[in-house]
């Protein structure tokens, strides 16, 4: 029964290994995206309705290349890691290889993110 379970602060301790890192990053990236999307919806609504300064400034931050570099990393990681979780949950036989798959997902993520980040920085450095 999942509800009775309590991880406590010990659950936050790093116990090594790629899968633990992926687990922690999946949670952190998920929470960061909830925060970002929530703030972005509120800021856009306030900007649209009242045109207030803080909402406009917040959305200017969200549009900056450096912020986008971070959020795109989180989205890519969450998407690829989430796909791994879905595949392993639906085909539990593959759980035997989960350590290898966790490395494989970084081998997918690094070139994908690297290419995106490179194009974004080329646009940024090349001027508008």
């Amino acid at each position: 029964m999942a509800l009775k379970r309590n991880v406590g602060l010990k659950g936050l301790k790093y116990r090594g290994g790629g899968p633990m890192l992926a687990w922690a990053l999946h949670r952190i990236s998920g929470l960061a995206m909830v925060l970002f999307v929530g703030m972005h919806i509120v800021a856009s609504f306030v900007m649209q309705q009242f045109g207030s300064d803080w909402a406009t400034n917040l959305n200017i931050v969200y549009e900056s290349t450096y912020f986008q570099l971070i959020i795109i990393f989180l989205v890519y990681f969450h998407a690829i890691n989430g796909m791994r979780i879905i595949i392993l949950d639906f085909w539990p036989k593959l759980l035997e290889y989960q350590r290898e798959v966790t490395w494989l997902q970084w081998m997918l993520l690094i070139p994908m993110y690297g290419l995106t980040a490179m194009v974004m920085m080329l646009i940024k450095l090349g001027g508008e």
Partner: peptide, 19 residues
């Protein structure tokens, strides 16, 4: 889908640390 997935994820994380 996004709001439900995300806020349910927030609930799952919170309930892992709060009993």
């Amino acid at each position: 889908l996004g709001a439900t997935h995300g806020l349910n994820g927030l609930r799952v994380v919170i309930e892992d640390y709060i009993d």
